[in-house]
Structures are given as structure tokens and as C-alpha cells.
Design a protein around this nucleic acid. Structure first.
Lengths: 204, 204
DNA sequence: GTCTATACCCAGATAGAC
DNA sequence: GTCTATCTGGGTATAGAC
């Protein structure tokens, strides 16, 4: 069975190295602006050899999206396992913007910028890229549900997603680290207020 | 003197038609994904004739950014002239997302998506594109200053800009009109609270 | 100012030797 | 699995006739 990840204990396959480097380059330069030659050079492969691993550029994109999907899911699972309360879990999401601050300032949000680019290209892989957003949306909605906000869970999740997207876009445009911290503080306060309002309406 | 706009009363120049159509295509398809041939076809010009008006693709981009700058400035001036209070003016900005809802859902924010793309390309025109953001930022900050929030004016302006960027990104990804309305309502409430808090701290 | 023709380059993609 | 060589298309850009 052809797995998308290398077997346990084996050295990293050429295919995996291609996908890993393509992931980075797509993030830094954008999908369209990254050529086969760029990826081949990064992996130290000849262009011809490339087609042994991927028949077309779109195939690499699919593999990159699948890689991001797996890593995103793993990260969300980790947050859910490590943080004991919904508020702590949502805080993990918010803090991600500080953790990845320097990359966000340079290249924006990996999910948002990819979806925006693929939308302009009317690329067939767009739905799969959008699925990365859905992963976050559903995970956040679950946390708000556990907070007791069943009816507004999805609305709150979308609100938080939108806030984080806006922060990434402007942090990138203005290359502004202080702005990220400012908005993260604002979001943490919003989260606190949201959680408190929930307790109040439930009579705690 | 070579003006960037056609003289009063004269028919629209070929140059202006090129810039107008390029503006649309860059918005809908992205800058890199739009070719000379695409623009030439839209204007009904031969490719060769193109270079009579613009020596290079980057020159068209500069002209498009300048066009957007002028139109943005004119719009902000109009809002400032028509709306009597700072709150009414900021509301105009917020309502823009409803007015342009269908375009935003299809192509995102014209400013945000252009800046994001040019950042990935490390394009020399990026600072000029970012200036479009600055136009909004300074105009909004002025409104918050007039509201009495002198010290937090820029922070509030950036917050509002970020919120609107996030809304545009997610409305585009999920093609969701109801979401725009939801968030616009939330923003209007935030604006109301912000204005009320100002009055309270000033003893009205 | 507008056209046709064309040069030039780079990207994606293929063939086939090793 | 890796390489070199090569084809093809599309994109930017130029030359020169009308």
C-alpha cells in the first residue's frame, strides 16, 4: 500500500522531502510563483527526475495540502489532549499567532494566503485548501460548545477565525510585531468575557 | 504635462481603458495570473500595440495602484463630506463590506489580496500597494481622534482594519453572505460601545 | 496609434540513457 | 531512482510596416 508518509524507521523518502520543501516554498513565495525548478533546486534534484515522483504540479499541491491537513489535525489533537479546559484550548489557538509571529509577519497565514491565491486562480484544489479552514472552524466550535455556547458555537468560531485572519493580513502588510501582541491581548480578553458571560447566563 | 487621467470632456483614452480593465482583472484573477494577452483581449487591442502605452507589466501595476489610490482618496473625502459625525463616517466604512459583499465573496478585498500577493512575490511595488492600507488607517484614526480617542486612535483604526480584512478573507473562502452581515452587526455594536465608552470617560 | 510578425525566455512536461 | 536532452506552450518584449 502506497502510504503518504515514510515507513517507520526508514530514512526520509525523496517524495517526502519534495513535499516538505514544496510546502515551505508555496508558503513563502506562493503556489504559482514557485516553479518546478525552484523545488528541484531546493531538494537537490534534476528537473527530469521530478516527474518520477509527481506527474504534474497540481499533484504536488494536493500532496502539500494533505500534509498540512495531517499536521493541522495532529496539532489540534495535541491541543485538545494537553489543555484541560475549553478556554485553555482556545487560548492555545490564539497564542499560535504569537508563536508563529515572525513567519506570519513575513508570509501571512499559510491557510489564508493559500486559499486566497487558489480562489483567484479558480484552482480545482480550492475546496481541499478550504478544508483546512473547516478543520479549525469545527475544532473551535466544539470548544465553544463545551463552554456551554452550543447555539452560538459556530458563530463564535467564525468570529475568532476572522479576527486571526485579519491580524495575519495586517501584520504581514505592516510587518508589525507589536500589533500582533495588541490584538492577541484583545482576543484573550474577548475569550475571557465570552466565557464569563456563559457562566453568568448559566447561573455558573 | 502628462496627466494620469484624461482631460475634461475628451473621450476615454486607450491608456485609461487599459488601466481600468487591468484593475478589474488584477482584482479578479490576481496580478501574476493576469497576462498581457488577457488585458489586451479585454481592451480589444493587439498585444504589440500594448507596448506603445506601457513598456512593462510592472508599469501597468503602478498605474493600477495609482488609480486605486485616487479612487480610495475620493471615496474617503466623500464619506467625510457626507457623514456629519465620526460615528457616521466610520459606519460608512463598515457598511462598505455589505455594499461590496458579492465582490468580496468572489474575490476578497482588493487591497488585502493585492498586498498579500505582492508580498509573496517580493514585488518592488509592494510599498505603494501597502499605502492603500495606510490611507484607510489614517482616515479611520482621524475619525477616532475626533471621537475623543486621541491616544488609542491608531490602535482602534488598526483593530477595525484587521476585523474587516478577516471578514473579507473568510467571506471569500466560505462564500458566505450571512457571515458578512453577522460580523458587520458585531462591528456596529463595537463602534457604538467604543463611542459610548468615550462619552462616559469624558463625562459626556 | 495600431497592426503583424517575431525574438526570446522560462515554465511544465516527456523520452530515454544510465 | 536519477540523470541529460528535448519538446511544447505561453508569457514578456521588440521591430518595423501601415
Amino acid at each position: 500500500m502506497s502510504s503518504t508518509s515514510s515507513p517507520v524507521g526508514s530514512p526520509i523518502s525523496t517524495r517526502d522531502r519534495i513535499v516538505e520543501l514544496a510546502d515551505q516554498l508555496f508558503y513563502e513565495r506562493g503556489y504559482e510563483h514557485t516553479s518546478f525548478a525552484d523545488i528541484a533546486a531546493a531538494v537537490n534534484l534534476s528537473r527530469g527526475n521530478f516527474y518520477h515522483h509527481f506527474k504534474a504540479k497540481d499533484d504536488i499541491l494536493d500532496a502539500v495540502i494533505e500534509l498540512r491537513r495531517q499536521r493541522t489535525q495532529a496539532m489540534l489533537d495535541r491541543w485538545a489532549a494537553e489543555a484541560p479546559t475549553p478556554v485553555a484550548r482556545i487560548s492555545r489557538f490564539i497564542h499560535m499567532m504569537v508563536m508563529n509571529g515572525s513567519k506570519i509577519r513575513r508570509h501571512g497565514c499559510p491557510v489564508g494566503t493559500l486559499c486566497t491565491e487558489l480562489a483567484k486562480l479558480e484552482h480545482p484544489a480550492l475546496p481541499r485548501a478550504n478544508h483546512l479552514f473547516i478543520l479549525f472552524r469545527q475544532w473551535l466550535a466544539r470548544q465553544f460548545t463545551e463552554l456551554g455556547r452550543t447555539h452560538q458555537a459556530d458563530t463564535l468560531a467564525m468570529h475568532l477565525l476572522a479576527r486571526s485572519q485579519g491580524i495575519a493580513t495586517l501584520a504581514n502588510a505592516f510587518d508589525d510585531e507589536a500589533f500582533i501582541h495588541q490584538e492577541v491581548e484583545s482576543l484573550l480578553k474577548w475569550l475571557h468575557d465570552t466565557a464569563t458571560a456563559t457562566q453568568a447566563s448559566q447561573g455558573s
